[in-house]
Amino acid sequence: MKVAIIGGTGFIGTHLIDHLLAAGHVPRLLVRPGSESKVERGAECELVPGTLAERAALDACVRGADAVIYLIGILREFPARGITFEGLQHQGVVDTIAAARAAGVGRFLLMSANGVRPDGTTYQRTKFAAEEALKASGLTWTIFRPSVVFGDPRGRMEFCSQLNKDIIGAPIPAPLFYDGLLPQQAGAFELAPVHIDDVARAFTLALGEPRTESQTYSLCGPQRLSWKAILGTIAAAVGKQKAMVPAPVFAVRAMAGLFDRYPWFPISRDQIQMLLESNVCSENDSFARLGLTPTPFNVDQLGYLKD
């Protein structure tokens, strides 16, 4: 099967290509000119030069494909550089749907995110709007909503590597965020980290499984872990004992309000809000429905942090 991938040079795309090739598929990637070196197995893929904003390149990428996978997602937007949630997480999906329809490609897999909703942050709203556009498109769709994804970053941005760099490796105690005035619940909000290979397996399986059509899968790992527990596991994986202190979120929000427009500031107001909401699956049965067993989050699985 020939699979057109939009967003194939990122963290998830790089691992997904390995799984697609192992299953005998032919990945075709839309690649920004100058970024060809980011495709680790480029000789085994078809590369189409161009950007999401170039309709001719988008048409060329999906033409003749059996399926389209849209992976693009960003954690922060920088409008001055043309990086926006609306452009990349919603309008980009709309444009790719139009290209797929014009090319007669009926199968479309979308990477969304756990917790998306129409009244949330801009990140959540645009992801939700993309889902709705796909459902209304007339294409045969499958939507995946992963929680935070961990695994070997291969030089790209990844959840645990970022926390190790920004928090565990910092010379100050790790912040246990809490809302309100009292710190009893500091760092108690929960996440369900999901391994990158499990996400890639789910996408690859869906290409050949009719039972996954018109289905939405929330992909969470097998554990609900507190922020404090996750930081402790990352610290243990790199051989450190990390001091942790309660951190009132109003102070972090105030700083983010001043500085989150700058790439050097580590977190945005929306990211803070989504962290405190927790990121776990209310019905954690998606992997069982897919016939897959998710990987646990533990020190053994975080060996890549020592590299």
Rank of each mutant, 00 (worst) to 15 (best):
K2S: 08
V252Q: 07
K242L: 09
G115F: 01
L205F: 05
L181P: 05
A43S: 13
N284P: 05
I5L: 06
D166I: 11
V245I: 15
R269P: 00
D59F: 00
R63G: 05
G13I: 01
E44D: 13
V199M: 11
P118D: 08
L71D: 01
I69E: 00
S278I: 13
S137K: 06
K228V: 00
L109D: 04
Q223F: 09
T233K: 04
V199D: 09
Y123P: 03
H195G: 05
S147M: 07
Q184A: 15
V194D: 03
I74D: 01
G115P: 07
I168N: 13
G120F: 14
Y217P: 14
L176W: 13
P27Q: 13
D95Y: 00
C220W: 08
L292C: 08
L75S: 02
L302N: 13
P173K: 11
T216E: 13
G8V: 11
L29W: 14
P33D: 14
H15S: 03
L207D: 04
A67H: 03
A99Y: 02
R63E: 13
F108M: 08
L181T: 07
I6C: 02
Q185F: 07
K228N: 01
R156Q: 12
D166N: 11
L110A: 06
T295M: 14
A130S: 14
A102N: 03
G42V: 05
R125W: 06
A174Y: 04
K135T: 04
K306V: 04
G239E: 14
T233W: 01
D260K: 01
W264G: 02
Q184W: 08
P183E: 00
E131I: 02
R125I: 08
I172D: 05
P296L: 14
M111D: 01
K127F: 06
I234V: 15
G87K: 09
R201Y: 11
A229P: 06
A206G: 06
F128V: 03
T293S: 15
M1Q: 05
D198W: 12
L182S: 09
Q184R: 08
D198A: 10
K242R: 15
A57R: 12
P118H: 09
V93K: 00
R32E: 10
L134T: 00
L276A: 09
I196Q: 11
M255R: 05
V39I: 01
P79L: 12
P153V: 07
P173Q: 11
F108C: 04
I168W: 10
S137F: 05
S226F: 03
C220T: 09
Q124F: 08
V199F: 13
P210T: 02
V48H: 04
M255K: 04
A202F: 12
E277V: 05
E54N: 14
P27S: 10
N114S: 15
L139Y: 08
L52S: 10
R28P: 06
S226A: 12
P263V: 02
F159G: 03
L110F: 12
G82Y: 11
A103Q: 04
L182Y: 09
A188V: 04
A170R: 14
I168K: 10
A247W: 15
L275E: 13
A98H: 01
F85W: 01
M274K: 06
F159S: 09
A288I: 10
